[in-house]
Design a protein around this nucleic acid. Structure first.
Length: 286
DNA sequence: TGGACTTCTGCCGACTTCCC
DNA sequence: GGGAAGTCGGCAGAAGTCCA
């Protein structure tokens, strides 16, 4: 519901959050006031804000006013401008599509060039048709071959039949993404982004190139505070070299990158015999 | 059915900015 | 300069998805 103020506030807050478009100084309260004062009616309105009304934004009440301020407003406006050029994966995440978090957004952008390509994705349609056919015990060989050829799926060792495959995303996620872009909300977002001249591009790397990267197939888990870089920076460096960062330690984890005051992941890594490295070791590895 | 992984939510301390 | 308000960066854990 695009017109519910409470939902709009939450959408703006999520849109601006660090993992999404990282619009500094815009958190829950600021998002709430921007919507309440009528400056923002939907997240993309942020791209049409002017510095003066934002600086004068009253975060308090009529009786006890408290302005947002010039510095915060400048910081926010600079971050909004920066957001225009962020890669497609960040934009897909920022749109708050159900079931699409950072990891799924990154997976999708590896196989699509633009946001319109994701909206019209034949790969996602193929996944749905593949699962429907399997459910009805019909042959899905042709679709399976197409998905494998694209790199979006690989043959499954365990799934019954010749056409058993494992895809990058499952049918629930595929349906969710296609439904989102087919909805009135999704269509409006695509139209508005075009009008605003926002065309995020994929940072995709070919499967062959990705496999040749030094950290290809390596799984990292981060815990604690790193002395010289944020976790986000560390994640970007790992992913740039072909590695993968997950949230929990398992037998499949190759390295736990531990900073100061690590949490339970550190203990679990020790328990499971997973190699633990500090930032210095990580930098050496890079 | 269990394991691996992701998403989502809530919480907390540190830090930044504004106002008085 | 100090207090208030808000954001940032991190953690833990529940719930859900997917695969073997």
């Amino acid at each position: 519901n695009l017109y519910c103020p409470a939902q709009t506030t939450r959408r703006v807050e999520f849109f601006a959050a660090r993992g999404a478009l990282d619009i500094e100084s815009v958190g829950g309260i600021v998002a709430d006031k921007l919507v309440e004062r009528g400056l923002v009616k939907e997240p993309l309105d942020l791209f049409e804000l002017k510095i003066e009304p934002v600086a004068k934004l009253n975060l308090g009440t009529e009786e006890a006013p408290r302005v947002f301020g010039e510095k915060n407003a400048t910081k926010a406006m600079n971050a909004i401008e920066r957001a225009r050029t962020l890669p497609l994966s960040r934009w897909l995440y920022a749109l708050a599509i159900p079931d699409v978090g950072k990891t799924t957004a990154t997976q999708l952008t590896r196989f699509h060039d633009t946001i319109q390509d994701v909206a019209d994705s034949q790969l996602l349609r193929d996944i749905l048709e593949y699962h429907q056919r399997r459910e009805h015990k019909e042959s899905a060989k042709e679709i399976a071959e197409r998905l494998i050829k694209s790199g979006f799926a690989k043959p499954s060792k365990s799934k019954a039949g010749k056409d058993g495959i494992v895809t990058e995303v499952g049918p629930a996620v595929a349906q969710s993404v296609l439904d989102f872009f087919a909805s009135a909300t999704g269509r409006k977002i695509l139209r508005r982004m075009k009008e605003l001249g926002i065309e995020p591009k994929s940072e995709k790397v070919s499967a062959k190139k990705a496999a040749a990267l030094p950290l290809a197939e390596k799984t990292f888990v981060l815990t604690g505070t790193l002395p010289l870089m944020t976790r986000e920076e560390a994640t970007e460096k790992i992913e740039a070299l072909g590695g993968h960062v997950t949230g929990s330690v398992s037998k499949k984890t190759d390295y736990v990158l531990a900073g100061a005051e690590p949490g339970s992941k550190f203990d679990k890594a020790k328990e499971m015999g997973v190699k633990i490295i500090d930032e210095a070791g990580f930098r050496k590895m890079l």
